[in-house]
């Protein structure tokens, strides 16, 4: 059964059609790749799912529910967590506090309970701190728990954002280029962590990534988009042999080379 279903969505920005009648679905428990050349519209798809943008047309269903009826801050309550391509961390806060904010939707204490630090708050706080500690441990972030995010190296920050998405215990996680800018070692670690999402937590993953080796090694199926349109769908083998995909990537490369010359 498909967990997430994207039906024929389109969105345009001042004349530019960023997504054009795009449909695909993500099965529960699977790891699905969403790839395409720069500017293809991958991040825009994420932003539509996370409700930052409202598609001009089409439908997004999550577990059969219409996602477009919800506000951005309600998406995580539904069970969808995301990371951002350009990282949207809380940079002045510690790593631990970032992971506590990650569990914001899991805590339902009212204002006065918090203002007067009643027992319920204390119980809640220790629960979410335990959860954060567990995730930090798994991501190797424990030594940085009390460091401010802004003081950490880029690779660690990337991991913090990943951990922050995971700590909310989502059903579906959207990863936007989790390995961008990472060295081979770090990429290896990230690959392992993404694999664990399925094997340990049973979380469904929708992955945007330019590193094809990574994508091929973990995705069950891949959707390829270009200029906002879906140009191919299939298993990693099928995709790597698809002439249209090769054309889209190579064509773009030639263009780039032309532009550079």
């Amino acid at each position: 059964m498909s967990l997430l279903e994207i039906n024929n969505i389109s969105i345009s920005f001042v004349g530019l059609k960023a997504i054009d009648s795009l449909s695909f679905s993500v099965d529960e428990g699977s790891t699905v790749g969403l790839i395409g050349p720069n500017g293809a519209g991958k991040t825009t798809v994420f932003n539509c799912i996370a409700r930052y943008f409202k598609p001009d047309q089409g439908q997004i269903l999550f577990r059969g529910e219409d996602l477009l009826a919800f506000k951005p801050h309600e998406v995580i309550e539904k069970g969808i967590a995301r990371t951002f391509q350009n990282m949207e961390l809380f940079r002045s806060m510690t790593v631990q506090d970032n992971l506590l904010v990650g569990q914001h939707s899991r805590v339902n204490t009212g204002f006065f309970i918090n203002a007067f630090s009643l027992r319920k708050k204390k119980i809640n706080e220790s629960q979410i701190k335990d959860k954060a500690a567990a995730v930090m441990d798994r991501f190797g972030l424990t030594p940085y728990a009390n460091s401010r995010v802004i003081s950490l190296p880029y690779g660690i920050q990337k991991k913090v954002e990943f951990a922050r998405a995971l700590v909310s215990e989502p059903k579906l996680i959207l990863l936007d280029e989790p390995a961008a800018g990472m060295n081979p070692n770090e990429t290896e670690e990230i690959t392992e962590l993404i694999k664990q999402l399925r094997s340990v937590d049973g979380i469904t993953v929708l992955l945007v990534e330019h590193d094809m080796k990574l994508v091929r090694s973990i995705c069950d199926e891949i959707n390829v988009i270009d200029f906002g349109r879906k140009i191919a769908h299939g298993t990693p083998e099928e995709i790597s042999r698809n002439p249209q995909v090769i054309e889209a990537y190579l064509g773009r490369q030639e263009e780039n080379e032309y532009a550079r010359a």
Partner: peptide, 16 residues
């Protein structure tokens, strides 16, 4: 503080 540091990040974490 989350909202101050990153509105987009905070909203994605469920902060209204």
């Amino acid at each position: 503080v989350a909202l101050r540091d990153s509105e987009a990040g905070a909203e994605a974490m469920g902060v209204q």
